[in-house]
Design a protein around this nucleic acid. Structure first.
Lengths: 245, 245
DNA sequence: GTCTATACCCCGATAGAC
DNA sequence: GTCTATCGGGGTATAGAC
C-alpha cells in the first residue's frame, strides 16, 4: 500500500537520507557538539532554512543520528548472534557471547564517531528523548538472550553475589530478565558496562602506547567476562554434561 | 628560591588560575568542544586578546585542563591507596584495590565534566601533546602498585592467560611492570579498562532506568575485578581458581 | 600586559516571496 | 518546499596604541 507513493514522498525520503549521511560526515569531522544545520545545508547545496522542512531543529537531527547508531550496533549484535547459531545451535553460549562482543567491537572500530555519539560523553545541552531508549537496549537484549539460552540448556554457573547487592539484583532481574537468577542479571549488567569499557578505552585512545595486540586482549577479556556471568566454556560444559549423565 | 618572587609573577599565577577555574565552569556548561577563550575572558571581565598572554591558543588551555584533571584523579587514587594502608599495611590488597576504585569513582561523580574531558570521547580536532601522558598514567600506576604489594606478599593467584595473548602479555609486562607475571599484567590492563567502563556507564547515563543502587553494583563489580587480576581476599588461591572455573 | 579595533569567519532560527 | 533576507548572536586570532 505505502510501498509506492507519489514522487514527492520518494524525494522526501531521499533528501532526508542525504541530510543524515552528510550529518554523519560532519560528526566525524567536528563532533556532535558542533553538528550544524548550516554546514550540512551548505555541503548539500541547499540553503539552511530548507533543512527545517526535514528536521524541525538541530536536536531532532541529532536524535535521528543517535537512533540510527543504536540500531546499527544492535543489528550487528543480533546478526552475530544469529550467525553464531542462536537460539540453541551447535555453538556454545560462551562462543556466542564472544562472537557478539567481537561484533560490537568491530562495528565500533568501523564507526568510531557514531560509537562516540552514543557511548561517549553526553552532548552538552542535548537531552535524549524517549525515542532513543528502545534502540539503546538492543545490544543488552542480545547479551541477555545469549545467557538465557545457556540458562535454559542448564549450562550456567551461578556467579557469587554480595549480600548487599541482593535487593538490587532482584530488582534488576525483575525489570530485565525475570526468568534468570538475580545473581546472573547483576553480573550481566556489570559485564555489559565492562565490555563497553574495553571498547571505549581502545577507541578513545587510552590504549595508545599501552596495548598493541588489541584484538587478542579484547577476546581474552570478554572470554573471562563470559565466565563472570556464569557461562561455561567448552571443557567445563562437557564436564557438566558428564556430571549430569 | 622561587617561592617568593616579584608581584608580577604572583599576579600571573593568580590570573592563570582564575582563567583555568572559569574554563572549568564553561566545560561543565558547554562541553570541551565549545570551550571558548572569548567566553572565558568575558566572564572574567577581560578582553579576549588579553588571554593570549597566558595561553597561546585554545588548545593550550584545553591541555592545561586535561593535565589538571588527570592529576586530580591520580591524586585521589594515590590518597586512597595511602589511607588504605599502602604499601603493606594491615588492610588486604583486595580491600585496597576496592578503596582505590571507589575513590576514582567518587572523584568522577564529583567532577563529571572533567571526567568526560579525559575519559570520554576525544575532543574533535584536538591532539593531546606529550605533556598529558605522564599524568594520564597515574591511576594505572596506583593499580599496579596495589597488585605489586600483593605479589610481594605472596598473596596473588595467577590469572589464566590465553596462549594467543602470551606475547602481548609479555610485552605489556616488560613495559609496565617487569616484576609482575605477564598474566597478571594482562589481566590488570583489562581490569583497568573495565573499571572505567563501569564509571563511564554510570556517568554517561547508560545506567538510567537500568541500575539504581549504583554504588553497590560498582563495589561488587570491582571486588570481582580484583579477583580477576589475582587478588585474594578471604579465599585461598585454590578456592579463587575454583570460583573462576 | 591590557586595551581598542579589526579581519574574517561561524551559528540557529524565522519571515515572507515565489 | 525552496528561496532571499534578516535578526541576533557567537567564535579565533592579530595589529598596534598605550
Amino acid at each position: 500500500m505505502s510501498t509506492i507513493r507519489g514522487a514527492r514522498e520518494r524525494a522526501r525520503v531521499e533528501v532526508t537520507a542525504a541530510i543524515k549521511d552528510e550529518a554523519r560526515k560532519q560528526l566525524a569531522a567536528e563532533g556532535a557538539a558542533k553538528l550544524s544545520l548550516r554546514a550540512v545545508a551548505r555541503e548539500l547545496g541547499m540553503v539552511s532554512s530548507a533543512l527545517y522542512r526535514y528536521f524541525p531543529s538541530r536536536d531532532d537531527l541529532l536524535t535521528a543520528l543517535i537512533v540510527e547508531a543504536y540500531d546499527a550496533v544492535g543489528e550487528a549484535a543480533e546478526t552475530a548472534r544469529a550467525e553464531a547459531g542462536a537460539p540453541a545451535g551447535a555453538i556454545s553460549p560462551a562462543a556466542r557471547w564472544t562472537a557478539v562482543s567481537c561484533a560490537v567491537r568491530e562495528w565500533a572500530l568501523g564507526h568510531p564517531h557514531e560509537y562516540a555519539l552514543i557511548y561517549g560523553s553526553p552532548v552538552p545541552g542535548y537531552a535524549a528523548p524517549q525515542d532513543t531508549v528502545g534502540p539503546a537496549s538492543r545490544v543488552g537484549q542480545v547479551l541477555i538472550s545469549v545467557v538465557r539460552d545457556a540458562h535454559l540448556a542448564g549450562g550456567l554457573a551461578l556467579p557469587p553475589v554480595d549480600p548487599a547487592l541482593r535487593p538490587e539484583a532482584a530488582r534488576m532481574a525483575a525489570d530485565l530478565a525475570p526468568d534468570l537468577p538475580p545473581a546472573v542479571v547483576a553480573a550481566l549488567v556489570s559485564a555489559w558496562a565492562q565490555l563497553f569499557g574495553l571498547i571505549s578505552f581502545e577507541l578513545f585512545g587510552q590504549f595508545n602506547r599501552v596495548v598493541e595486540a588489541r584484538e587478542q586482549l579484547f577476546r581474552h577479556a570478554v572470554h573471562e567476562l563470559g565466565h563472570s556471568v556464569g557461562l561455561l566454556d567448552g571443557r567445563t560444559s562437557a564436564a557438566a554434561d558428564a556430571a549430569r549423565a
